Deep mutational scan, measured.
Amino acid sequence: SIEEEIKKAEEAKEKGKTFIHGDFVATTEELLDELLKRLRKKL
């Protein structure tokens, strides 16, 4: 679910890890923020 993806992305951000969502690879905090923004729009 979208909620689960958001939670996983937030955890990755806290730990400074890379998060992959489909073909979107978030390797930096900026990219994770962008991904979180996109996911929240889908809610």
Score class of each variant (00 low, 15 high):
K15C: 15
L31T: 06
E4G: 05
K17I: 14
R40E: 00
K17E: 14
R38L: 15
G16E: 06
E34I: 12
T27A: 11
A12T: 02
T27P: 01
L32N: 00
K15G: 08
T28P: 01
K37Y: 06
T27D: 15
G16R: 05
E3F: 11
A9M: 06
K7F: 07
F19M: 06
K37F: 06
T27G: 09
E14H: 10
I2Y: 07
D33W: 13
T28N: 09
E11R: 06
L36D: 00
E3Q: 11
E10L: 14
S1Q: 08
L36I: 14
D23S: 12
V25K: 06
E4C: 15
E5F: 14
T28I: 12
E14N: 10
K15P: 02
I2Q: 04
L35R: 01
K17R: 09
E10W: 08
D33N: 12
L32E: 00
E3V: 11
E34Q: 10
K41P: 00
E11D: 11
I6A: 02
L31I: 06
F24T: 05
E10V: 10
F24G: 03
E11I: 07
E34C: 14
E30T: 09
A9K: 03
K42T: 10
E11V: 07
K8D: 03
G22E: 09
L35E: 00
A12V: 01
A26M: 05
L31K: 04
L32Q: 00
T27L: 11
E29G: 12
K13E: 02
K17Y: 14
A26F: 10
E14K: 14
E29V: 14
T28L: 12
K7L: 09
K8N: 07
E30W: 13
L39I: 05
T27F: 14
A12R: 02
T28H: 01
A9R: 04
S1G: 09
T27Q: 05
K41V: 08
S1E: 09
K15Y: 09
D23H: 07
I2M: 05
L39Y: 03
K41F: 06
E30Y: 10
E10C: 13
F19P: 02
K13N: 02
T18M: 12
I6V: 04
L39V: 00
D23W: 14
K37W: 05
L36H: 00
T18L: 08
L36F: 04
E34P: 01
F24H: 04
F19N: 04
L36R: 01
I2V: 08
L35M: 03
E29Y: 10
D23F: 13
L31Q: 15
L39P: 00
E4N: 07
K8A: 10
A26Q: 03
I2R: 04
E5M: 15
L43Y: 07
G16V: 03
I20H: 07
D33K: 11
T18Q: 12
R38A: 13
L39S: 00
A9N: 02
H21Y: 15
E11N: 05
R40V: 03
F24E: 05
D33I: 12
H21W: 15
E10R: 07
R38W: 15
I20S: 06
F24W: 10
K8Y: 04
D33Q: 07
R38D: 01
L43K: 05
A26D: 02
L35H: 01
D23M: 11
K42P: 01
K41M: 12
L39T: 00
I6S: 04
T28K: 01
H21K: 05
L32R: 00
L31F: 05
K13C: 15
G22D: 07
T18K: 09
F19S: 02
E29H: 10
L31S: 05
K15S: 10
A9L: 13
F24C: 13
R40N: 00
E14L: 14
T28D: 05
I20E: 06
F19C: 14
E34M: 12
G22P: 06
S1M: 10
F24M: 06
E3N: 06
K37V: 08
V25R: 03
I6E: 02
D33T: 09
E10T: 08
L31H: 08
L31E: 15
G16T: 04
L31N: 03
K37E: 11
L36V: 05
T18H: 09
G16P: 00
K8L: 11
V25E: 08
L32V: 02
R40W: 11
L32F: 14
I20R: 06
L35T: 01
R40G: 00
H21S: 13
T18F: 12
L43S: 01
K41W: 08
E30G: 06
L36G: 00
K13A: 05
K17W: 15
F24N: 01
A26Y: 14
H21D: 03
D23Q: 09
E34H: 07
E30L: 09
A12E: 03
L31Y: 03
V25Q: 08
T18Y: 12
A26P: 03
A12H: 04
K42F: 13
L35S: 00
E3I: 12
E30H: 09
D33Y: 12
K17M: 14
A12K: 01
K15A: 12
R40M: 05
T27M: 10
T28G: 07
K37R: 14
L43A: 02
S1I: 07
D23L: 12
K17L: 15
E14S: 13
A26C: 11
E5W: 15
E11M: 08
A26N: 02
K8F: 04
L31V: 03
L35D: 00
K13T: 01
L35F: 04
E30P: 02
L31P: 01
L43P: 01
I6Q: 04
I6T: 02
T18E: 09
K7V: 05
I20C: 15
D33F: 12
G16Q: 06
E4T: 06
R40D: 00
K42R: 12
E5T: 15
A9Y: 02
T27K: 09
E29A: 14
I20V: 11
E11T: 08
L43C: 12
E34K: 09
E29C: 15
L32G: 01
V25S: 06
L36N: 00
K15M: 12
L35Q: 01
K42Q: 13
